[in-house]
Design a protein around this nucleic acid. Structure first.
Length: 266
DNA sequence: CGCAGCGCCTGAAGGC
DNA sequence: TGCCTTCAGGCGCTGC
């Protein structure tokens, strides 16, 4: 599933082939989630930014084109198959290439908004600080979690204490920081550890081109390599790389959660 | 206002 | 072999 590192890789891939181009929508799937694709009819793409897991393309008419990849979304430039059963939108570019949005499970979403007005996208509107920016550190993470009574993993998935962390990197960061996913209150030292772990886990994933478990692809169709470097996510039943204990599995908020019951504590 | 629970989707995997 | 069930989960929405 695309989280911050995967969305960042897509953003970088789009810079060379989509920034500066003019888009003309040639297909939009009937679902209301993708109808906004048709609003791109002659606008130029000035820049392509990212907030958490959201891609934000600045248009030359003062609006922004927002893409969330959901679970299985992919933005592809000139894919071999641009009329497959899971294609949800196609834009023709003045470069002659096509930009294709493919999304098997249709959890993705497209929107065109007045620049900076995210009132119709509440998760983006209320998004926490970017973890790889100067606006994020242990003190900030502590301040943004201290008043909540929810489990720390639930808080991370909400995007409010920090932007862009999903199920994979939440499990990885909590493992690295040795914090139990059902911990409810972080001490300041543990918040420092978790903030550092989030930054390390996300930076390493970007360095490895993102995590491809099934659907995530770069703009050119290539896969990431970070799945070879996971310590925790999806490894229940295997032995902890740190202490050798068998990793445990539970369900939180309907999401599979892997952790080490020995070296991750409350 | 904060938080829990539900529904959206479809392919893969497992059971019989 | 093939049908059926279960599982995967980010986010918007609803209701307490």
């Amino acid at each position: 599933m695309p989280e911050l590192p995967e969305v960042e890789m897509v953003r970088r891939g789009l810079l060379s082939s989509v920034r500066g181009r003019t888009l003309h929508c040639s297909y939009a799937h009937e679902s209301s989630k993708f109808a906004a694709a048709a609003e791109l009819t002659g606008q130029g793409v000035v820049d392509i930014c990212r907030r958490g897991k959201y891609l934000i393309a600045a248009l030359d008419d003062g609006r922004e084109f927002i893409v969330h990849l959901g679970m299985t979304g992919a933005l592809l430039v000139d894919p071999l198959d641009r009329a497959g059963p899971h294609v949800r939108a196609v834009w023709h570019m003045d470069s002659g290439q096509d930009l294709v949005f493919n999304d098997v499970r249709r959890f993705g979403r497209l929107a065109v908004v007045v620049a900076g007005d995210y009132s119709e996208l509440p998760t983006l509107r209320d998004m926490g600080p970017e973890p790889l920016s100067d606006a994020f550190d242990g003190a900030v993470l502590h301040a943004l979690t201290v008043r909540s009574s929810s489990h720390i993993k639930t808080q991370l998935l909400s995007q409010r204490p920090v932007a862009g962390v999903g199920n994979i990197y939440a499990d990885e960061a909590l493992w690295m920081a040795q914090i139990h996913p059902r911990c409810r209150q972080l001490s300041k030292p543990r918040a420092e550890r978790l903030a550092t772990a989030i930054q390390e886990v996300l930076s390493e994933a970007i360095d490895h081109g993102g995590t491809t478990l099934s659907d995530y692809r770069q703009v050119d169709g290539s896969k990431g390599q970070n799945q070879k470097h996971l310590h925790c996510y999806g490894r229940a039943g295997e032995l902890c790389d740190r202490c050798g204990t068998e990793l445990s599995r539970t369900v939180m908020q309907g999401r599979g959660t892997t952790f080490c019951r020995k070296c991750q504590s409350y």
